[in-house]
Design a protein around this nucleic acid. Structure first.
Length: 881
RNA sequence: GGGCGCUUAGCUCAGCUGGCUAGAGCACCUCGCUUACAACGAGGGGGCCGGGGGUUCGAGUCCCUCAGCGCCCACCA
């Protein structure tokens, strides 16, 4: 209590680490695996990359998930927040390759085993960073059972799924066009590709007809792929070229004969209307080639250079080959034109290199059979997506799903459980074995490829719980309840978890998907390290440089963005929740500041109550409220409403409204009014009990949002002993505490006081002065006393009326005194009269409208009449002309 | 090329199924260090709710259209 006495300000940096220690020591974050999923509450965290650091998206999602976890834990559920990290194949491998490069070596040089060892070493060193940062945020994840997507048990689950899908015919090996990333020397998925706009040159090249009877001209930005052309295509409806279909042309430089085919895909109004077909190096041409049974030639290798099949160009980079080929064409007089051409081109999200579409032998997963049930569960509501507009995107995507290339030519990841003998590895004659264990016998070699990271992520909600073993964890927590994530991985990850969960764990992996905002930089750009627009959540929590992105937004001076004050984790959590919505939103430091102010306000309100109660020598007992007076009944009613509202908003995943509702209750009802209303009262046992009850219940309801400050204050409550608020069971809001009469009475007090204060201010009355007034209102005695005190009125019987203030239930006449400035008063009165006349005219117009009176609902008409009467009465009271 | 969304006070945003004398936080102005909080409190100013048209007794809220911005999906050489 003494430290409460001394400190007038809540210091998050002092309190938060201390409180984190208490939480961890108590072990509340780790529930025993008992009961069934229906009794319990679980969320699987989207596993951050093991090498990653906490960014604003993690912080928002952490705040969301922790609010839900704490809320349900306090409602008596065993609440488990499944924690872990993702091995993140390409991202991690790239990091370690960079490290090796800085040491003057490479992964090829050190070899696969050593390289893998180095990655594990790296993981040991950096893997804990993000988990520590989550702890700093106050996230009550199950730190006792941290998973990793490369754990031995997890690895078994991954292999088992692969083998079973293979046995079920859903996984197969095929030559197919993939997005080849020359940077990481691996196939990557469509989802790891980003389109960038580049300026290329569009060349027009003549292909002479074999019979010498003219030529066709094709347009291309990649002349070097000409070496692998196997056809030329025109649109079947294109009359210009109809006579050419079926004839052949001579491929320049190479001399091969190509047939002119007809395909709908070719646009008649683009380029020359003739399209060179290169099935080996262009995804569209690949499709056309398959349709027409064309050869798939390849002249570019996996290193992005021209391959041996490119003949004299072998070994050149694609770009060099292009220049040489263009030059040759020019010499041969076959170049018909060239012009700059701006278009979008795929780049690897990871390595940043331009994607080289290549045909290669890869492992694929057939998705249609898996997708159908995943669509059904969203359609029939077994999985609910919030906001619901996202479910259409989900369904659309699944309905158009294509085979998934699951093999990656990396060393870091789950190595594919496939062995070859003979020439099977390269697609030739031989044996292929798929199984969890190496096959018996000699001469087998294992497929060197690993699985796409998302393959293992897709198993996350059940593999983390011990599947395929029938573990108590699995029984207690699967299916989980909520999956919270940003939009960008709805397909990449969420849809795949649903498919895998249904197929292997026998049920949906979660019942609700919450798709949260993307937090943009304050200027509306993406938050990104490379743009310098990123804001480190830890800097906001503990204080740190404010990035230059704040410059020019109006929030801060353009030159020196300065530093963030140490807002604390509560403030950041509150701010992020308050600014989030279903839209993308700009990061708002003001919202964070609002959270800081809320924490401080709550601290001081609690301090006020606890010190008062202590000074009065009251033992509030168990804190059961004893509502003596109207304002006590009012605050209990409002508290109950606030609790009910918070519960339903959280059920609807409306975190912004819930957070702002908390702020409004604490400021707008508890502090601004209730504590002011009771200030003059002597604290007796009844009032003490009510006050402590209200504070306690407020802390309980606020805790999931701002866990630190509430936990800190909880320890100061009279009955506190050593129990943690985080582990306290909230009792449901008691509807019998709702009291409409008290609400109406205090609402009248509040508007009266506000009116009177406004009047005083306008009339130039000193804030501290009490002024004589006479009452002509039927407001009850109790309420009137409150109004008089808060508006500083002294009831008097006679005196000249200086001004009239309309209040609910009547009017209050302010009597003339030297405290009232008549000139100010007249100005105020005239202004009010003007407003009233305007509003009266509007209401009269409305009520004079036959259509309104006849067609609008009765209640609306009645309300309008009542309003009109009220305004007219007020105008009459003012006594102006 | 399709699809979705946004445009409300100086800034960041609320406004659900149409009834609003249009709200909040921050910023701004005035007053106040009244023993919970001056990183605070009280009061105040500030908005033809992007433009145009329509439906309706009534539109910030519904429909059409134009303009600007953003996101997602897609194979235009």
């Amino acid at each position: 209590m003494s430290d409460l006495q001394a400190r007038t300000r809540y210091e998050p940096t002092e309190a938060e680490p201390r409180i984190t220690e208490r939480w961890l020591a108590a072990g509340l974050h780790h529930p025993e695996p008992e009961g069934t999923a229906a009794d319990n509450y679980a969320i699987a965290i989207p596993p951050p990359n093991v090498t990653g650091a906490l960014h604003m998206g993690h912080a928002l999602n952490g705040a969301i998930q922790d609010t839900l976890i704490r809320w349900h834990r306090m409602r008596g559920k065993r609440a488990k927040w499944i924690l872990g990290t993702d091995h993140a194949g390409i991202a991690t491998q790239t990091q370690v390759e960079k490290l090796l490069k800085s040491e003057g070596t490479s992964r090829e040089e050190v070899g696969r085993d050593e390289f893998t060892r180095r990655v594990w070493e790296w993981r040991e060193q950096y893997g804990g960073t993000i988990v520590g940062q989550l702890r700093r945020l106050g996230a009550s994840c199950d730190y006792d059972e941290e998973r990793f997507t490369l754990d031995a048990a997890y690895h078994d689950a991954v292999l088992k799924v692969f083998v079973e899908l293979f046995e079920q015919g859903l996984i197969y090996r095929d030559n197919y066009m993939v997005n080849w990333d020359p940077g990481s020397r691996s196939a990557i998925s469509d989802l790891e590709v980003e389109d960038r706009e580049v300026t290329d040159t569009l060349y027009e090249i003549a292909y002479p007809l074999s019979d010498g009877d003219g030529e066709v001209v094709v347009a291309t930005v990649r002349p070097e792929t000409l070496l692998a052309d196997t056809a030329v295509a025109v649109n079947p409806d294109d009359e210009r070229f109809a006579h050419l279909v079926g004839r052949t042309v001579v491929l320049p430089i190479v001399g091969r004969e190509l047939t002119i085919i007809a395909d709908e895909y070719v646009k008649t109004d683009f380029g020359t209307g003739c399209l060179k077909i290169t099935p080996g190096h262009d995804p569209n041409d690949f499709e056309i080639g398959r349709k027409h049974g064309l050869d798939e030639l390849s002249v570019i290798g996996e290193d992005g250079r021209m391959s041996a099949d490119a003949g004299e160009y072998a070994g050149l980079s694609a770009l060099e080959a292009r220049e040489r080929i263009v030059a040759t064409l020019q010499e041969q007089g076959l170049l018909r034109g060239s012009e700059p051409y701006v278009h979008t081109v795929p780049f690897s999200h990871r390595s940043g290199e331009r994607i080289e579409p290549l045909v290669s032998l890869q492992w694929f997963m057939r998705m249609d059979e898996l997708a159908a049930p995943a669509i059904d569960v969203v359609r029939d509501g077994r999985v609910r997506i919030h906001p619901p507009t996202q479910s259409r995107r989900y369904v659309d995507w699944l309905e158009n799903i294509r085979p998934w290339c699951v093999s990656r030519q990396l060393w870091w990841g789950h190595q594919i459980p496939v062995w070859y003998r003979g020439d099977a590895a390269s697609g030739g004659e031989g044996e292929t074995y798929v199984g969890m264990e190496p096959p018996p016998g000699e001469g087998w070699t294992r497929d060197p490829d690993v699985l796409d990271t998302w393959f293992s992520s897709a198993l996350w909600p059940f593999a983390t719980l011990g599947w395929p073993q029938d573990t108590p964890e699995l029984r207690a927590f699967y299916p989980t309840d909520v999956l919270s994530t940003a939009r960008d991985i709805l397909f990449l990850w969420v849809a795949r978890m649903v498919m895998m969960g249904l197929r292997f764990a026998g049920d949906v992996p979660f019942t609700d998907v919450y798709v949260h905002s993307v937090i943009q930089a304050p200027d509306g750009r993406r938050m990104s390290k490379s743009l310098g627009t990123g804001i480190d959540p830890l800097d906001v929590i503990s204080g740190g440089p404010r990035p230059p992105v704040f410059a020019g937004t109006g929030a801060h001076p353009p030159h020196d963005p300065g530093e963030f004050p140490a807002y604390g984790a509560d403030a950041l959590r509150f701010g992020l929740l308050a600014m989030s919505s279903t839209q993308d939103v700009r990061f708002s430091e003001d919202r964070v500041q609002q959270g800081q102010q809320l924490a401080n306000k709550l601290f001081n309100a609690s301090r006020f109550v606890l010190l008062r109660v202590a000074n009065a020598g009251i033992d509030p007992g168990d804190g059961a409220p004893v509502p003596d007076r109207v304002e006590d009944r009012w605050i209990l009613s409002r508290l109950t409403a606030f609790q009910e509202e918070t519960a339903s908003l959280l059920d609807e995943f409306d975190f912004a409204k819930a957070a702002l509702g908390l702020y409004d209750f604490v400021y707008g009802e508890l502090c601004d009014w209730y504590l002011e209303l009771i200030k003059s009262r002597e604290v007796d046992a009844a009032l003490g009990a009510t006050l402590v009850h209200v504070i306690r219940e407020t802390l309980v309801t606020a805790h999931p949002f701002i866990p630190f400050v509430t936990e800190e204050l909880w320890s100061h409550l009279p009955a506190a002993d050593d129990t943690l608020l985080a582990g306290t069971q909230a009792t449901p809001a008691d509807p019998s505490l709702r009291d409409p009469a008290a609400e109406e009475a205090i609402a009248a007090v509040i508007t009266s006081v506000q009116e009177l204060r406004g009047w005083r201010d306008a009339a130039g009355v000193k804030p501290g002065a009490s002024i004589p007034a006479r009452l002509r209102s039927d407001m009850g005695e109790e309420a009137l006393a409150l109004v008089a005190r808060l508006a500083r009125l002294e009831w008097a019987d006679d005196g000249e009326v200086a001004g009239t203030v309309t209040v609910p239930g009547g009017t209050i006449e302010i009597l003339a005194s030297e405290l009232v400035d008549p000139a100010e008063l007249a100005r105020k009165r005239d202004a009010r009269a003007g407003d009233l006349r305007k509003e009266i005219a509007r209401a009269e117009g409305k009520l004079g409208n036959e259509g309104f009176v006849a067609k609008a609902p009765e209640a609306v008409v009645a309300a309008e009449r009542e309003k009109l009467e009220r305004l007219q009465a007020e105008l009459a009271e003012l006594g102006t002309e």
